[in-house]
């Protein structure tokens, strides 16, 4: 249609030809994301580059030396005998935390999903530690777990002499896990509860007509249908478990020995207590690699374990 081309902006208020609707939208898009994007560049990407750069150096803050040493810090990772223990503690802590958190969250969600009077009160109470200040929660647990603290006091009333929870290797690890689980399990519980309530009731009715017992209904209907939520929460929980710092710092300071020194705590000690910024950076890179690999692996598992996606 040649005619149409000839009178290209004949009458009416036309815009400047450059600012088409699509172009204005692009500009708007960039303006909207600008604060976040600039923040990510300044506070995530550049620091990530720097942390890698630092990890290639020996950096003594007190002596004010910054020397390029190539992969030497990474070789140190292998030679560092403490690191084996630290990684072991990290693995036990994270695994214990995730398993306990997820199963307790699921149990609580199933309980809260029952038709019982006053169930909302229970929900509120189970959730309440989430909003209690983290350090306050940790302090009171530290107080309860003292040798002569509340827990041992109550055990003694039934004739059991409790251990010095935070000063023995096994019980110290159990303690920091348990304290963290009770603090945050409410979050996953709520997410699971929402997922459970999203399962169509007709499915259970159909299963009952088919004669499936309650346990089988749970395994064959409930679990598959809430599997996307399980996956998502497990990713969040694992990544979160690798960031646990305050609880360790307040309860055990990584002890006894290195038994509760998780990677983040070790990183903090190396960098900010011993001022080995170079080696601390290398540990940071390691933490990043672990988080990335775990997240990626779980994302890949999605295809296998998630039966259904909305």
């Amino acid at each position: 249609m040649a005619v149409a081309q000839e009178n290209a902006y004949p009458e009416g208020r036309s815009l400047s030809p450059f600012w088409t609707i699509a172009r204005r939208d692009s500009l708007a898009g960039f303006l909207f994301i600008a604060p976040q994007l600039i923040g990510i560049i300044a506070f995530v990407l550049i620091p990530l580059g720097l942390v890698f750069w630092y990890s290639l150096h020996e950096w003594n803050v007190l002596a004010n030396t910054f020397t390029y040493t190539g992969a030497q810090n990474y070789l140190m990772l292998i030679e560092d005998e403490s690191l084996v223990e630290v990684l072991g503690a990290t693995a036990i802590f994270s695994a214990g935390l995730v398993v306990m958190n997820m199963s307790l969250a699921l149990l609580l969600a199933v309980l809260l999903n029952q038709k019982l009077a006053g169930i909302a009160i229970f929900r509120t109470l189970f959730f309440s530690p989430v909003v209690v200040s983290l350090v306050a929660w940790t302090i009171v647990w530290g107080f309860l777990l003292q040798k002569n603290g509340g827990i041992n006091g109550m055990l003694l009333m039934v004739g059991i002499e409790g251990p010095n929870w935070l000063r023995e290797e096994t019980t110290a690890m159990i303690s920091v896990i348990v304290v963290q689980v009770f603090k945050n399990v409410g979050l996953n519980m709520i997410l699971f509860l929402a997922a459970l309530q999203g399962v169509p009731k007709e499915l259970y009715e159909a299963a009952r007509i088919d004669g499936a017992p309650a346990f089988k209904q749970f395994r064959r209907i409930t679990l598959p249908l809430i599997s996307p939520t399980i996956l998502l929460t497990s990713i969040i929980t694992i990544v979160g478990s690798l960031q646990v710092f305050a609880q360790i710092a307040v309860l055990t300071q990584g002890g006894p020995g290195l038994s509760t020194t998780v990677l983040v705590y070790y990183l903090y000690q190396q960098a900010f207590q011993f001022h080995f910024f170079g080696y601390g950076s290398t540990l940071s890179i390691m933490l990043f690699a672990i988080v990335a690999v775990l997240t990626f692996a779980q994302w890949q598992m999605r295809k296998r374990i998630v039966f259904y996606e909305s």
Partner: peptide, 24 residues
């Protein structure tokens, strides 16, 4: 692409970047 870059932030706990952030 930009969304993916931003999502990187989920993968990088602030503990990872605490050393350079302190220096900055």
């Amino acid at each position: 692409t930009i969304f993916m870059i931003v999502l990187l932030g989920l993968l990088i706990p602030s503990e990872v970047t605490i050393v350079p952030l302190f220096q900055m």
